[in-house]
Amino acid sequence: MSEQEQEFSGSDVQKKFLYLNRRAPYGTIYALESLEVVLIGAAFDQDVSLAFLDDGVYQLLKGQDTKAIGMKNFSPTYRALGDYEVTKLYVEKESLEERGLSIDDLMEITYEDEDDDWAEKPSIQLVNRSEFAAIMAAQDVILSF
């Protein structure tokens, strides 16, 4: 990955970036390539958050096993996001419910909070559908995949 990383020598502008994921993994490449943008983007010191709604919530399901379809299981990467200082993962409650899921069906994703003596905290925040409009309106850039 490092050879693709570009040193960005621009200003110290910090913008709010939201990566909005609405698609399930494996059936199409969007989830994987979205994650690749997030990992590269983490080097830019921006205010990053990820949103998972509609079929996007399937990206975070526990127990993904891709052996028999011959594709790479990239779900462990979500659990490493904390190491990239990507710590805000908004998951829409209604999208889970519509799919018969709850937060217990999702991977446990945590980060260590440097402002709180490195306490381990959950990265996933359940968000109501009615709150999402405000989250989007607060962004400078929304990248949807």
Partner: peptide
């Protein structure tokens, strides 16, 4: 702050239009 939402899918084929409408805020 207000959002311009774009929808490029037929509402009869995909849920994008419906999902969009459920996520708009006042002034969008």
């Amino acid at each position: 702050m207000s959002v311009l939402h774009t929808v490029n899918k037929s509402p009869f084929e995909k849920a994008a239009f419906e999902s969009c409408l459920k996520h708009t805020g006042p002034g969008d």
